[in-house]
Computed example of a mutant assay.
Amino acid sequence: MAFGEQPAYLRVADDLRRKILSGAIAPHSRLPSQARIRREYGVSDTVALEARKVLMAEGLVEGRSGSGTYVRERPEPRRLARSGYRPREGEASPFRQEQADEDCKGTWEAESGQEPAPARIAARLRIPEGGRVMRTRYLYRTEGEPMMLSTSWEPLEVTGRSPVLLPEEGPLGGRGVVERMAAIGVVVDNVTEEVSARPGLAVETSLLGGVPGHVVMVVSRTYFASGRPVETADVVVPADRYRIAYHLPVR
């Protein structure tokens, strides 16, 4: 094959992709069958099948059991804001402030429980593997649609036997890490975030309404107080529905 020359299945996939993105094959329409692709493009069954697999892997189409393969609707990616903004006393966490906007109509579900820290979380919190942490899982929705997952871990050696043991309960429930930690004399003065992308786990894509294997973005965040990690979290969002935007103050 000459340099720059594409295999037949990629050429077919490129043309079908162009038709999907231009609207020539509308969202929710059935993708041409394997037999039709074979006839229209003059290719083998194998090439037609591989072209369909490419479009499915890219998230442009989805298979429906017993029905066929259909074009997925592709909404305009929404902006998910991240900033260095520090909430003032009495204000909700940044997500709740954003969701308070009348256009967002956001809701969330949360569930907390104590567990031993797995190795990767222990390393981020700089505690021994198996050290006790409070793990809280969140599912955020916007206008009823699932949009983000988050799991946070707080070392019990910091929050144990305190009024802020449970992030979503008590007098400061839902106030965010900075204010909750301040209430027990821990001053958060630094936060780091690392953004990565990977195929979504089956449980993640199921909760987020996607297809297993589709790409998700992961924001790994850790709050520090005088160099000590006091909370770490993984925020997971579908890469095809959201874009992460940062607004950071310059000091």
Rank of each mutant, 00 (worst) to 15 (best):
V250R: 14
V188G: 00
T136N: 07
W108A: 05
R18H: 07
S33T: 15
R72Q: 10
L172W: 14
R88S: 05
V195M: 06
M56K: 11
G23W: 00
P163Q: 04
V215N: 00
S150K: 14
T232F: 02
L21V: 07
V177P: 00
G113H: 11
I20Y: 02
S67W: 04
P118V: 03
G227A: 10
P87Y: 01
L207E: 10
R96K: 14
V191F: 06
T136Q: 06
L165R: 10
A92F: 10
Q114M: 11
P7H: 13
A225R: 08
A122Q: 04
R30D: 05
E76G: 11
G170H: 11
Y140S: 05
R132G: 10
V186S: 03
E73L: 07
V43P: 01
E204P: 00
R96Q: 12
H214Q: 15
Y223E: 04
L201I: 00
S152R: 11
E102M: 08
R36H: 11
A239Y: 01
V158W: 09
S162E: 11
E169N: 05
E98L: 15
D103Q: 07
G59V: 01
S226E: 14
L21D: 02
A110D: 03
I127H: 09
T205A: 01
Y85F: 13
L156I: 13
A92T: 13
R228A: 06
A81L: 11
L16A: 05
A35T: 11
M56C: 05
T107G: 05
E204C: 02
G174R: 00
M147K: 09
V236G: 00
P167V: 13
G160R: 13
H28W: 10
